[in-house]
């Protein structure tokens, strides 16, 4: 068959969501942020809530998320996105509020805001992209940097004596009464993207239904920070990151999931 017989509007099966702007993403080649943006915005589009969704961008690589996500957005001070989202949700309970944060933002400087927003059970969605490093500032150690992992501020590898242990924020917030759905995903394969998107979609729906805080972690790569090719970084992520940050549902509909059920 000739290509022109296939490439017709009626045969379209996938194109970038209109909820993303035409602006070229500022992320490095192969960075999971783009995919995480895409599925977040697809979920909003599919739920038909674009007009009432307001996002909060963090400080970090995704500081410019508001340039790419075609909804009303606020850019928050470093770590404060859950506080900003709390206010948005409180003063406009009819709207759907989400934050999009990296590991430095959410798990280091914003630990207090994250934990307290989750503990209050704010009806917001928190998308947490964990790539175990500070990407924007040039590859410094993050609270989620793996043990032994090298970064520009742990040049000989992270040690417990010097730096403490990698922080499992997602397991931590799952313990709080206020969280409703807590899960960990990745976006590096088709199957994982589909699962992550399903979780995000449910998170938005449950936030809209005022069921509490929805927390979706996406373990992702940072090929620039990790100093690997995009394909290699995803392989390294599978081998090392997933070992410490296992994918799966941690809390579902307000109930902690038995760890042995994790995939």
């Amino acid at each position: 068959m000739d290509l022109k017989d296939i490439i017709k509007p009626e045969n379209l099966v996938y194109t970038k969501t209109k909820n993303m702007t035409d602006k070229e993403l500022s992320y490095c080649p192969g960075c999971g942020h783009g995919t995480a943006h895409m599925i977040t915005m697809e979920a909003v589009e599919e739920l038909g809530i674009t007009e009432k969704t307001i996002g909060v961008a963090p400080v970090g690589c995704s500081v410019l998320a508001y340039e790419f996500m075609n909804v009303d957005m606020q850019q928050a001070a470093h770590g404060r996105a859950p506080a900003v989202a709390t206010a948005l949700s409180r003063v406009m309970p009819e709207k759907v509020i989400f934050t999009y944060q990296g590991d430095g933002d959410l798990a280091a400087i914003g630990t207090a805001e994250t934990i307290h927003a989750c503990n209050r059970g704010e009806n917001i969605v928190i998308i947490f992209v964990n790539n175990g490093i500070y990407g924007m500032t040039g590859g410094q150690m993050a609270p989620t940097t793996l043990m032994g992992m090298k970064s520009s501020t742990s040049p000989y590898g992270r040690t417990a004596e010097q730096n403490g242990n990698p922080l499992k924020m997602t397991e931590l917030v799952a313990q709080l009464e206020g969280t409703y759905n807590v899960s960990r995903h990745s976006v590096h394969t088709f199957k994982n993207v589909k699962k992550a998107k399903k979780a995000i979609k449910k998170a938005f729906q449950d936030a809209m239904d005022k069921k509490g805080t929805q927390f979706v972690e996406i373990v992702s790569n940072c090929n620039s920070g990790w100093k690997m090719s995009p394909v290699k970084s995803n392989e390294w992520m599978e081998e090392h990151m997933f070992a410490y940050y296992p994918l799966g549902q941690i809390k579902k509909d307000g109930v902690l999931v038995n760890n042995s059920n994790q995939n």
Partner: peptide, 9 residues
């Protein structure tokens, strides 16, 4: 689906 830049239709 895995393209981070959404460049594939």
């Amino acid at each position: 689906t895995v393209c981070p830049d959404g460049v594939i239709t």
